[in-house]
Amino acid sequence: MDMLYLGVAFFLLLNLLAGLWRVLRGPSAADRMLASQLFGTTAVAILLLLAERFATPALRDVALLFALLAAVTAVAFVRRIGSSHERQ
């Protein structure tokens, strides 16, 4: 099981870094925002796997914070910037 937790966490980290291409590429601001939102979900999964592998329950609290706060940046984006900053 240890191997699997780490293997899946590593695989998810690769996924996250691959997703950065979308942030770099865009084309619209909403695309970049969406990609960063996706990273939050991936990071939550990685944290939960590491919490189980290293038997550190505090990491679940870190994951909980990511899940709770995932919306804040995106809401700030929608309310303050919108897609007007750069059009597709």
């Binding site: 909403a30 969406l34 995106a74």
Partner: peptide
């Protein structure tokens, strides 16, 4: 709880981004 929150945030944010766009 964590999963529920991610679902809530994901659904809400996707709607907001899409309607904004």
């Amino acid at each position: 709880l964590i999963w529920g929150l991610v679902l809530l945030a994901g659904a809400g944010v996707a709607h907001l981004i899409a309607s904004g766009a």
